[in-house]
Amino acid sequence: MIPTDAPQIDILTISSAVLMIATFGVVVRRGFMDWLRAYRYQTMALSGVTAIIAYMTGIWEIYIAAALTLIIKAVVIPRVLLRVTSQLKFVARYELNPYISVRLSAIISALLVALAYFLTQQVPFRSDQILRAYLPVSLSLLFIGMFTMVNRRVALNQIVGLLIIENGLFLFATALTHGVSLIIEIGVFIDILVGVIISAALMTRISHTFDNLNVDNLEHLRDDKEE
């Protein structure tokens, strides 16, 4: 299908590419401060994308959503996380040994992007350009976030995966629905905020109890022990 509105396509493609690159930036960072910074950039890219959607659809509510994203995700959440880490006695700032090396995880992330495109091809877009551009991206974010969580050993660094997933979720919702009713969106935001706060509190507990934030400590409850 030949795009009818070439300049717009460009904007969409470029913005989604930017978002993907920002995401990869998050994936390949090992240190906590590094990925937090990368996450900020990714969130900014995301709010930019949101603004583009708002512009293209002309729905003013999405501007609010974009602004909310910027405020909550780029400002509040990093603040919270920073505060948490500053309270920690011992901070695992670096992910020393993820299950899969950074190089390989970048490649796997690329494969996941391909998978996302493969899976979304069958969805009938009804010539919705926004959707065509962003749906695979958002699914990629979902997969990549998930993969990051699977790959990381430090609790603090697992949060990054969660946050990528949430970004994907947000992009997905915005792209697909052009703004679900605002109440729900705010509810989702609050949920994320509370979730992060709770996980932060949990991490404080974890570091107090175990003296570090390795997930390896959290492997006591298991069923594969020998009898």
């Binding site: 969580m149 790959n151 697992q158 492997e219 006591h220 298991r222 069923d223 594969d224």
Partner: peptide, 9 residues
């Protein structure tokens, strides 16, 4: 039962 490895990952 060994699928319950105890690792959240």
């Amino acid at each position: 039962r060994r699928i319950q490895t105890g690792k959240v990952n």
